[in-house]
Nucleic acid binder design. Structure first.
Lengths: 256, 256
DNA sequence: AGCGATTTGTACGTATGTATG
DNA sequence: CCATACATACGTACAAATCGC
């Protein structure tokens, strides 16, 4: 990763919402974005602290604080005497923020692999119509989520149609392991700033049961994730259908 | 809280495992201990950063780091322009509230009414035996949870037996609408400082199904809540069985 | 094993910004 | 407006871990 790119990414993401943010958070978000859009790859080593401090308009202390901030959130790993590295095996950090299936020993997280199965217009009603503003139509992104090759879940993201019509033709929206929230931020300058999560045991819909080869009418775990953007405006409504399985979903972050 | 006491507590807690610890952690642990033994009371205001830095052999930056460390873990609350305060009981309680069923409009929370149905010794195994330390026996507190008179759930709290034997005879443990964690904190000076929550769609056990008048073998929402006390020691293991219902449970959003 | 070079971790001191009463 | 107190930022120095020679 060249520093110039990072510097460019940082300067590109200022001016608006970042203006009144502390510098260490600006740097932290800039690096986070670079990770999400793939400029910084999984496992890649970042430039050293002093190098960053020298080339960018940040002091060493500020760089350190930004990196520690990212390390606390699991985006990077810092190793004494070696360097700072993008956390590997985080195929999608954003996804893992919601899909934290625990491994057997309860210490690690299971890897997840996502695949887009459909991007289409929809006009039908549902919980998203009560959350998103009233629109002529909505865009639904269907994804298949493979958890550790053990079982699969179905994710459906609903977006206000008129604003995101371009998604229907954007090949990036159909790529594997795509991060929807990163896509919205990059392509539409619509970052998700806050989410509200709800969970319930609901009967799996017929089409989901069919797709996952389940019996009809059984109950599964269903997540509802409301995404808010600038000025706390409703931005996205995601529903994740998880079939019954032996794994448990962690719903709170842990600080040791 | 007088600085002299804190200084004494800090000097008393050195020499052993603290010797090779960073200074900011030593200070952090010292303050934490002062809270544990009651020298610093709930809601009490700590001396200012600069005051601490002046009176104790710590620089301002080190004091700030120690206080931020405690604030991140919820032991203290820092308020700009006001000061740093020991987290009070009510705040802790709200943080640890788990049954956040949302009302129809999604804005308010549904009222819950709890009723203790049994307090008894148990020696049987389960997920709690792997979490709590090995004990001769455990204490199980069964509760019936009525959510807005719409449906009922079952909660089972497992505690290490020897330490909490008194609960078997304590009438307060059988009172209605009692908060178990508040009870542990007040009666046993054993506050729950951190929880890890997991959720899954599991088959409801036979006795729970019978108690709730459900068909056998159906899946419900099952919460597993691990409670940690001082020094991050395992304190309680709670399992909540929620039958399928129309309401959704709000889970805490992740770090933004 | 020793010795530097590099890199993160800790600590200190100082200055300035900003929220609160 | 002022005093207080936390929040941010910068600069410096040294300690400790790691790697390659």
């Amino acid at each position: 990763m060249e520093i110039e790119k990072l510097a460019h990414a940082l300067s590109a993401s200022v001016g608006l919402e970042m203006a009144r943010m502390p510098k260490y958070l600006r740097l932290s978000h800039g690096i986070m974005e670079a990770i999400e859009v793939g400029e910084l790859c999984s496992g890649e080593r970042l430039p050293g602290e002093s190098e960053l401090a020298e080339m960018l308009p940040f002091s060493l202390g500020t760089v350190q604080r930004a990196l520690s901030h990212l390390a606390e959130r699991g985006a990077v790993v810092r190793r004494h005497g070696l360097g700072t590295f993008v956390t590997d095996n985080l195929t999608q950090l954003n996804e893992l923020l919601h899909f934290r299936f625990l491994s057997s020993d309860g210490r690690g997280l299971l890897p997840v692999y996502t695949r887009v199965t459909d991007v289409a217009k929809t006009a039908t009603g549902g919980p998203w119509t009560g959350f998103l503003d009233e629109e002529a139509f909505y865009i639904r992104i269907d994804r298949d989520i493979d958890v550790n090759h053990e079982f699969r879940a179905v994710s459906r993201v609903y977006l206000p149609g008129p604003r995101f019509t371009k998604l229907l033709k954007d090949p990036a929206a159909r790529a594997h392991n795509v991060n929807i929230r990163a896509l919205l931020r990059e392509r539409f300058h619509a970052p998700t700033l806050r989410v509200v999560e709800q969970v319930g045991a609901e009967t799996m819909p017929v089409d989901v049961s069919n797709y996952l080869d389940l019996d009809q009418g059984i109950n599964g775990l269903v997540l509802h994730i409301q995404g808010f953007g600038f000025r706390d405006t409703p931005l996205s409504y995601q529903i994740v259908y998880v079939p019954p399985n032996a794994r448990k979903l962690e719903v709170k972050p842990k600080l040791p």
